[in-house]
């Protein structure tokens, strides 16, 4: 096939579907109890130098506890897919976890502003960056989920996002249209936070799923954190609701309020005060170091982190806000 144009940045990950098939051939299909602590899951399934994928969208339904644990265990030199990564990206930069990046939305926290530390981490030249659009990066997961090495894609051509990416343009054998060929991305390990899972890893997600259906299928190893454990009978009573089946999953960790300080649809809203505190404290490196020690490195668990920020009382308030209950509305009017 003739290659018309190609991006000049590094292609991270191996798009070869037969290499992935050889891995998946050996992956266990046993429906067995996969419950373990976040600490154990990260020790077992996340290694230095590997490619990491994180589920959710920015500060919405993110596996915060897994990211904190990756920082505590000091993982380094990882590659990361920044597919609308906001607070998760901020954390991974604070931990200097990665030095290879597929970036589509990074360093920002959307309407909240930009992370000074994440920007500095990139501006200091710590990271080899390959650019994509969100959909192109999502399509890389989809190609992997389909077990093919690339998919045709109609965007980014003619821009520097293409130039500083690792796609190539090709001609459609049917119509003669030009397409960008987007290479498959099989992360070594991914972590996704869900609403409900059974002990085997059959998972339910409520609300938007972003790219997590494809990410779960593309990843070689998958860590699930869940708001709550439900029974296998409950899963079987409504199989339509299962988005991630057990055979994709390596570890199941029960982490209530696991997306905190992010949003979890139908459960709790994001803690905007704490996210603003992050943006503010990052401006002062010394203060930031103390802040990280307090909130992450000296915290044993996600419970301890939540207790530092108002515990159950705060979680109730965030629940009011999520559910737009009258309490929240009245508080809003008082402002």
């Amino acid at each position: 096939m003739e290659i018309l144009k190609e991006g000049i940045a590094t292609l991270f990950g191996d798009p070869d579907p037969d290499h992935a098939r050889a891995f998946f051939r050996k992956k266990s299909r046993k429906m067995e109890n996969k419950l373990m602590s976040v600490k154990e899951a990260v020790e077992t399934f996340v290694h230095d130098g590997e490619y990491l994928g994180i589920g959710g969208f920015g500060a919405n339904r993110i596996p915060t506890a897994v990211i904190h644990e990756i920082m505590r265990q000091g993982r380094k030199n990882m590659a990361f897919a920044g597919h609308t990564a906001t607070h998760d990206f901020q954390l991974l930069c604070a931990g200097k976890v990665f030095n290879k990046l597929d970036g589509s939305y990074i360093v920002g926290l959307e309407a909240r502003g930009l992370s000074p530390n994440a920007r500095q981490y990139l501006q200091d030249g710590n990271v080899d960056i390959t650019d994509w659009s969100n959909y192109a990066l999502a399509t890389r997961f989809k190609a992997a989920a389909m077990g093919v090495s690339f998919l045709p894609f109609r965007g980014t051509m003619g821009t520097d996002t293409f130039k500083w990416g690792a796609g190539k343009t090709i001609t459609c054998p049917f119509t003669g249209e030009t397409y960008m060929a987007v290479p498959a991305l099989y992360p070594d390990v991914a972590a996704i936070h869900v609403h409900e899972a059974d002990v085997y890893g059959n998972c339910r997600i409520k609300g938007i799923s972003i790219s997590d259906s494809d990410l779960a299928r593309a990843a070689k190893r998958l860590i699930i954190t869940t708001e709550r454990i439900i029974s296998n009978d409950e899963i079987r009573s409504n199989p339509t609701a299962t988005m991630i089946p057990f055979y994709l999953v390596d570890a199941v960790c029960e982490v209530p309020y696991g997306s905190y300080p992010g949003n979890m649809a139908y459960e709790y809203f994001s803690d905007e005060e704490h996210l603003q505190e992050w943006l503010k404290v990052e401006k002062n490196p010394e203060e930031f170091k103390k802040f990280l020690d307090k909130n992450i490195y000296n915290c044993k668990s996600h419970f301890e982190y939540i207790n530092l920020h108002g515990g159950i009382e705060k979680m109730c308030k965030l629940r009011d806000k999520e559910l737009l209950s009258e309490n929240h509305k009245n508080a809003g009017r008082d402002k």
Partner: peptide, 9 residues
């Protein structure tokens, strides 16, 4: 800055 996000798409 953040990059494309979904803007390019």
């Amino acid at each position: 800055f953040p990059g494309s996000g979904g803007a390019n798409d």
